[in-house]
Design a protein around this nucleic acid. Structure first.
Lengths: 193, 193
DNA sequence: AATAAAACTTGCCATAAGGCAAGAAAACTA
DNA sequence: TAGTTTTCTTGCCTTATGGCAAGTTTTATT
């Protein structure tokens, strides 16, 4: 029964007719990942994307010195996609890795294209999702410039408390553009107050 | 004659049929801005976007302390759009301002929607443009974390030399997340070598 | 439970970048 | 062209954050 499907939480029924949901949702395939599995690896061209039903995922890039930098974290309800690799059909610089056991719903590029060009509400919703991701990235970027490290951490804590609780200090630190040492000190300072 | 239209450089003929170009290009309206004119102002909801035929444009936000932070620079051939305000129909935090006299080609939201839903190649191209912008923003963000100030400046210099040559040191500095003082010192250091 | 491996904390010192303010240079303006 | 405003440079000192390394705690493995 499609009403009970996890993806109904993703494709809110208010924006889609029942027929549309029945055309869209069955196209997704359930996949499971083990901890440390790669959903996408540096050098590959993304040909799928996922919605997370359970578990935690991280994306990161490796810089010239070999340090990895977290670019994003994903948990229940989030879309996991390398937008540029998926749509520009280019090999990616990003790695996307499961941080725990995960259950996801997967769609491939060709099926996406078919839905995108045939269902108006699907493309509207896809555009909204992409633009929302763009907006979040822009705000993160502004925060990197305008806020000091402690405020960036507090901002993340407020926006994604479940991320802060479930992901290692080191991986959060690189997302915030600071070292693990600094983040440890920031946490201590906050705890004292 | 549509072949001579400026927008032919934007909508590459390889991706569009002649008929499509004739449906798309006449929908754009030429507008001119004087130096310091606002294309979009904080608090407004973006209802148009532009392609720049000539001149320079800057977008910026004002932080809590009242400092402005450049978020982007635009010149010939670039799209000037507040993606999130335009598509999510929300009031924006950004200001978009002409830095010189500008000639632009403008499209409004309703006309965009009509083209987007009716012309497959138009929506493919729009998606590509948005994703390319997303990619650039992401790389800027990674650069903010992985590179020191001098390298961020050299990167901008390489990627957008015409921006560095035409925009004030202060405005470039905030884009790079540093003070004008620091950028001045970085330039001096580079000049010495 | 024992051991190994990660993850986190802390101290000491180094450094990139900021804050402020004065002066120089360049760009407008009348 | 003289005057005014804006932009840029430079010196002096401060500060947030980094680098490294040792120790501690937590988590995984057999």
């Amino acid at each position: 029964m499609i009403e009970q499907h996890f993806l109904n939480h993703v494709f809110k029924a208010t924006e889609f007719t029942k027929d549309e949901l029945e055309a869209i949702i069955p196209k997704f395939k359930q996949v499971k990942f083990n901890k440390n599995d790669f959903l996408l690896h540096e050098g590959q061209t993304a040909s799928k994307y996922w919605f997370v039903q359970s578990g935690f995922v991280r994306s990161y890039v490796v810089d010239i010195e070999g340090n990895d930098i977290s670019t994003n974290f994903y948990s229940v309800g989030d879309i996991v996609i390398d937008w540029s690799s998926f749509f520009l059909r280019n090999p990616t610089r990003e790695n996307i890795q499961a941080l725990s056991e995960c259950v996801c719903w997967q769609l491939d590029f060709d099926t996406f294209q078919q839905l995108f060009h045939n269902i108006k509400s699907f493309r509207e919703q896809g555009r909204t999702t992409l633009v929302s991701n763009y907006f979040a990235l822009k705000n993160h970027n502004i925060s990197m410039i305008a806020d000091e490290a402690k405020d960036r951490y507090l901002r993340l804590l407020k926006q994604k408390p479940h991320i802060v609780q479930n992901i290692s200090l080191k991986q959060i630190a690189t997302y915030l553009g600071i070292t693990d040492t600094s983040l440890s000190r920031i946490r201590k300072e906050i705890a004292i107050k």
